[in-house]
C-alpha cells in the first residue's frame, strides 16, 4: 500500500455561519503500482481530498500513511510533500506560461544542481552538465510518448502559452515523468480535452504505471476512460467511500449506476 487514508473528515463554514461536513470519514487504500480512479458527483469532495493529500488543505481530521509510515501532512508545506514523492496535476494549472516547453520540463526535474543562487556561476561546468542531462531526459520522454520526430521536439523553445489547452494537458502529464514522484494525483486529466488527445492521455498514464512503476490516483468523470485505464475504482458519495474494488465491479454496481451514473 503506498497511501492509506484513515477516517478523513473536513468541514467548511459558510457566510451564514452554517457548518457543512464535506468529508465524513474517508477511508481509502491506494495500492502501489496500480491506477486507482476516484469517482463521484460534483461537489462530493474529490478535489478537496487531493488538496489534503498534496498539502494545500490543512484543516482536516484523520490520519494519512504514505509508504507505510504515518506522515503529518498538516505540518508539512506543499513543497515538502512534493519532495516526498507525491506529484499533482491540477484541473486548471497547466504548463507555466512565460517559460519555454524545455524550461517547463527541466523545472520538474528532481536534480537540484544550481538551485542555490550563484552556484551556477561558481561551478559552471557542473551546472552545464546537469542542464544537458535534464534536456536529454526531456527529449527522451517526449520521444517515448509522442514518437520519433514528433512536433514537440522542434517546439522545445516555444513559449508554453502558445500550446492549446489539450496540448498543455498532454505536456504537463509528460512533465510529471521528469521528477522523482512515486504517487501521482491527476485531477480530471481528460477534462476539456479533444477526444483525439484522450487516447494519448490513457497511453501516458499506462506508461506511468507499466514502465515507470508509478502509482496513479486520478479523479475522472469520463467513465469510458476510467474503465480503460483504472485497475481499481473508489466511489465517493456523501462524504465517504461508498464503494471500492476492481473498476468493472464498481462501475457495474447498481448503487453506483443509480446514484452517480443515473442508469
Amino acid at each position: 500500500m503506498i497511501l492509506r487514508l484513515k477516517d478523513i473528515h473536513i468541514s467548511f463554514t459558510n457566510a451564514h455561519n452554517e457548518t457543512f461536513d464535506l468529508l465524513r470519514g474517508v477511508n481509502l487504500d491506494v495500492e502501489k503500482g496500480k491506477i486507482t480512479a476516484l469517482i463521484g458527483g460534483n461537489g462530493t469532495g474529490k478535489t478537496t481530498l487531493f488538496n489534503i493529500i498534496s498539502g494545500f488543505e490543512k484543516n482536516y481530521k484523520g490520519k494519512i500513511e504514505f509508504e507505510g509510515h504515518e506522515v503529518n501532512f498538516k505540518r508539512m508545506p506543499a513543497y515538502k510533500i512534493s519532495m516526498e514523492g507525491i506529484g499533482r496535476l491540477f484541473q486548471d494549472g497547466q504548463l507555466m506560461s512565460g517559460l519555454t516547453l524545455m524550461e517547463n520540463m527541466k523545472l520538474a526535474s528532481n536534480d537540484t544542481t544550481g538551485e542555490i543562487p550563484f552556484v551556477s556561476l561558481l561551478f559552471p561546468n557542473r551546472y552545464k552538465q546537469a542542464e544537458l542531462k535534464k534536456e536529454a531526459q526531456a527529449r527522451e520522454i517526449l520521444t517515448r510518448i509522442f514518437g520519433e520526430n514528433n512536433k514537440y521536439l522542434s517546439l522545445l523553445n516555444q513559449d508554453a502559452s502558445a500550446f492549446s489547452y489539450g496540448e498543455q494537458r498532454l505536456l504537463s502529464l509528460a512533465r510529471m515523468l521528469m521528477g522523482g514522484d512515486r504517487l501521482l494525483l491527476l485531477d480530471e486529466p481528460t477534462s476539456g480535452v479533444h477526444p483525439q488527445y484522450i487516447n494519448t492521455i490513457a497511453q501516458i498514464i499506462r506508461e506511468m504505471k507499466e514502465r515507470e512503476g508509478l502509482t496513479v490516483l486520478l479523479i475522472e468523470h469520463n467513465m469510458h476512460f476510467v474503465r480503460e485505464v483504472a485497475d481499481t475504482c473508489a466511489y465517493l458519495d456523501e462524504g465517504v467511500i461508498a464503494e471500492v474494488g476492481p473498476t468493472n465491479v464498481v462501475l457495474g454496481n447498481q448503487k453506483v449506476r443509480n446514484s452517480y451514473l443515473g442508469l
Partner: peptide, 29 residues
C-alpha cells in the same frame, strides 16, 4: 541571472503560478 541560471528560471516560474511552483517541490517562502 534571470535568463541563464536556475534561480532565474525559478523566479520566472514563481511569477507564473505559485501553486504549481510549490507542487513542483519549490519552497515559495
Amino acid at each position: 541571472i534571470l535568463l541563464w541560471t536556475k534561480w532565474g528560471l525559478k523566479l520566472r516560474a514563481l511569477s507564473t503560478d505559485e501553486t504549481l511552483f510549490e507542487t513542483l517541490g519549490f519552497d515559495t517562502n
